[in-house]
């Protein structure tokens, strides 16, 4: 798991360094469409914050989107790992048989 976390960190750091170049190369396509989130009908504070951020600072919104997705994915991964350990199954080894 330590190795997984370290490898992910290294790759994410590399991705952050290279992201501007990629973003430039992957640009175009659907960029003409402008969507504005309607914050007038949102009661929930957190949702309103997300919608406001989307309207005002899309770069920060994108950063949050990536960070929160990674965080939520990792959190759920650890949580499920905790639950799966309690099933009594051996989750650390397997036999590779092709046919």
């Amino acid at each position: 798991m330590k190795r997984f976390a370290m490898t992910t960190m290294v790759v994410l750091a590399a991705c952050l360094l290279l992201a501007p170049g990629w973003a430039w190369a992957a640009g175009g396509g659907a960029s003409e469409l402008v969507v504005v989130a309607d914050t007038r009908i949102i009661d929930n504070g957190l949702m309103r914050y997300v919608a406001n951020l989307y309207n005002t600072d899309v770069t920060l919104f994108a950063t949050w989107a990536v960070v929160l997705t990674a965080f939520w994915g990792a959190f759920l991964g650890f949580l499920m790992d905790f639950c799966m350990k309690r099933t009594g199954l051996d989750l650390n080894s397997r036999k590779i048989v092709e046919h």
Partner: peptide, 25 residues
């Protein structure tokens, strides 16, 4: 890795519904 990069580029274009992502996850 490619998904995280894709998520960033689509988010910068404003094409991500974050709430749905969390529910699906």
């Amino acid at each position: 890795i490619s998904g995280l990069y894709g998520a960033f580029t689509y988010a910068i274009k404003g094409r991500i519904e974050l709430v749905a992502v969390f529910v699906m996850l």
